[in-house]
Design a protein around this nucleic acid. Sequence first.
DNA 1: GCGTTGATGTTAAAATTATAACATTGAGTG
DNA 2: CACTCAATGTTATAATTTTAACATCAACGC
Lengths: 255, 255
Amino acid sequence: MNDRSAQRLAKLQEALASGGTLHLRDAAEMCGVSEMTVRRDLSTQPSPISLLGGRLVMASYPGVTPVYDLTEQQSSHYQVKQRLCQRAASFIEEGDTLFIDCGSTLIPLLGQLGRFRELTVVTYALNVANAVAVLPNVRLVLLGGLFYASSQSFGSDGMGAAIERLGINKALISAAGVDCERGVSCFHFHEVGPKQAAIATAMQRLLIVDASKFGVVRPAYFASLEDFDIVVTDDERAPGLLERHPLPTLNVSLA
Amino acid sequence: MNDRSAQRLAKLQEALASGGTLHLRDAAEMCGVSEMTVRRDLSTQPSPISLLGGRLVMASYPGVTPVYDLTEQQSSHYQVKQRLCQRAASFIEEGDTLFIDCGSTLIPLLGQLGRFRELTVVTYALNVANAVAVLPNVRLVLLGGLFYASSQSFGSDGMGAAIERLGINKALISAAGVDCERGVSCFHFHEVGPKQAAIATAMQRLLIVDASKFGVVRPAYFASLEDFDIVVTDDERAPGLLERHPLPTLNVSLA
DNA sequence: GCGTTGATGTTAAAATTATAACATTGAGTG
DNA sequence: CACTCAATGTTATAATTTTAACATCAACGC
């Protein structure tokens, strides 16, 4: 609304930028206004700050957005991914070195990794890294580079080579589109390199996609269906689509 | 307390591992117990989950721990770092490519980066990367490798070389110990490589340390005081300690 | 069987947070 | 100067969360 309001928000955002929470009370004092004014700032203006039980937090930080809102329809999406990941987890064995792809599909998988005694996760996604970083039993290797906010992941020239130097056991790959003829694709071109390298080097290659991705083609092609050993998906419709596929080795696992 | 209690916690932790929040109500339903029981689980057992305004969150995630608790003595530490970083920020110019070291000292600096039109940040620390990832005006380059939880940072053989390939303008280095004779040191050996590479390649080298680090020696030596162009610190005592130093070019900036 | 005990549920009260309504202020304007 | 209007403060009320106290219940040993 106001100019001063925006300034206050900016100030608070700066204070929160490095993480942490700020009590409404302190935020108000910090800005020299009443709590009510801070509340109004927050509700009037769009802002990356959200108010959570009397505390201000950066909404963009992980660990803040709700995951399990029974009231939301988004819940069903989450449920599907949860089931998919449960199935995918059943292919993981003690001591594995996993390549975990970027995107939101594989995120629920990371919670299940706590069950193992020892694992190694290789990833080029920041959100994956954050979830793995807190697991004491999982060694984390993050492939760095230039950050792409759109996919919360990193890209660099040497990444392909770096992946191939690692002894990756199982590659867990996600996709934005899967089509029998046109193959497997994603949105962002910088994801192609790491995905292909992981597929090339891994002993076992799993594609984890929910049924909504079938029959869809996205701008960046990165593999054919035959490149995968196992496809983990959630719809009876999917196997039908896949069966037409010539490769008899294609193993479809229904979650 | 109980075995079942621990199981519930584990279940909830799993659900939260990938980030997000869970309303107490949903958590209770999920476990098939009352909200009170979940509350008791959380307060009885030590757990990485914390309850924030009726919602469960992973306490270890950034953006959750309070930063500005006026009631805590830790606040003063934060204030010092805040001042230090404010001063350090005054050396940053539009368009700079900054190397930002790991640790907690430089975290408050990241909030101030929003002021610039365009910057590039190079880092090997996960907490730094997270704070920078949300800034639309800052390009982020994360140097990956194996994750060290103790310092929230990555290490790899090639990191030194990778740093030297980048055109780093200003290196902002933190330290755990500074001594006139024994030089500048930190706790972890894997930090030595990247720090030294950044010092070697940067056009301008800033050391940012609060006064409590003076006269302290830590296991991993990584530079002499002469290697820095500017020392940003917070105590009058510090310049005294530094003045004895032979190099007349040493520039001490008091926050 | 009976009493004990620990885990859990239920309920009421207290504390905190959110919302809404109305009061105050202060700058700009005819 | 009186008026308007937006911004902010204040207060009351509603909703939610937290805490405490007491009630149940099932397992266990004697």
